[in-house]
């Protein structure tokens, strides 16, 4: 740099700030740009959300007192909503793992069962599946308690979607890993359990996070089977008081806040996992 500047008439190296100072200037400029971006982002949200709130308030249909009166009852549904979502995502992961192993199986019967599972579940509405598991299984003498039926239906459904995610995750593990494992004399089962699945799980964890956030919203469907979670509570109070507009709006806000909360949680988890891949 100094050499270059010395060759340029009018560029006096002594007149230029020392390199260290430039580095510091660049850093500060970046920080300022970052702060500006964050402020503008926050302002955009405030304006848009505020605008929506004002528009809704201008309808004259929002009665804070009414919501406040039923607030404890509504919010009392959140623990069940979260419990159902968490339990369902855990079991869905299990279904997905088994389904994915079936979908990559060379055994035609196992492959057939797994493929039928995915096709059937993805090809029918979730609400019908919930109703079927709740109301039709008893015809076979299988009476699942409502909470079990709800969690089972959600996890069975999500498991089918996640089967394809897991299968893609397993297939995303580089071929070299399989070759290295078999060159070391590992059996296929051993390779799958110790080499492929641990890597596949890391690949699919962000996708599981997305599924979980979708699950929080779909958990509203278990209101169908007498579970008095968030959606059931808002819907029932709304219908009873000719106030569906207010209560559904309120439910939407609560679901939104929940998904924002878990999205942030998921982002942090992903960051931590990305770091752990680089750990020394």
């Amino acid at each position: 740099m100094t050499d270059f500047a010395a060759q340029q008439p009018g560029l006096d190296p002594l007149a230029m700030p020392p390199p260290g100072a430039i580095v510091e200037d660049i850093r500060q400029a970046r920080r300022r740009a970052g702060v500006r971006f964050a402020l503008a982002f926050a302002l955009t949200w405030i304006v848009l959300v505020g605008g929506m709130a004002l528009a809704i308030a201008s309808t004259g249909r929002v009665h804070p007192d009414f919501i406040a009166e039923h607030l404890p009852f509504f919010l009392g549904g959140i623990p069940l909503t979260i419990f159902v979502s968490v339990a369902s995502i855990i079991f869905a992961t299990g279904f997905a793992l088994i389904g994915a192993l079936g979908r990559i199986s060379r055994n035609p019967v196992i492959y057939g069962i797994a493929s039928l599972y995915v096709s059937l579940v993805r090809g029918t509405p979730l609400v019908v599946q919930i109703f079927f598991i709740y109301s039709a299984l008893p015809q076979f003498g299988i009476v699942l308690p409502a909470i079990v039926a709800g969690v089972f239906a959600l996890s069975f459904n999500y498991g089918a979607y996640m089967t394809e995610i897991f299968r893609a995750g397993i297939q995303a593990v580089p071929r070299g890993q399989l070759e290295a494992a078999s060159a070391l004399g590992m059996t296929e089962r051993h390779t799958m359990r110790r080499i492929v699945l641990p890597q596949a799980v890391r690949i699919v964890i962000p996708a599981i996070g997305n599924e979980f956030i979708a699950m929080i919203k779909d958990s509203a469907l278990v209101s169908f089977v007498a579970l008095q979670e968030l959606f059931w509570r808002t819907r029932t109070v709304g219908a009873a008081n000719f106030a569906s507009f207010e209560t559904l709006l309120f439910a939407a806000i609560v679901y939104w806040v929940l998904t924002i909360f878990f999205s942030l949680f998921q982002e942090r988890l992903e960051k931590r996992m990305a770091q752990s891949d680089r750990r020394p």
């Binding site: 070299g176 080499i195 891949d277």
Partner: peptide, 8 residues
């Protein structure tokens, strides 16, 4: 292997 193929 050429590509090492260590288990990451």
């Amino acid at each position: 292997f050429q590509e090492f193929n260590l288990f990451p």
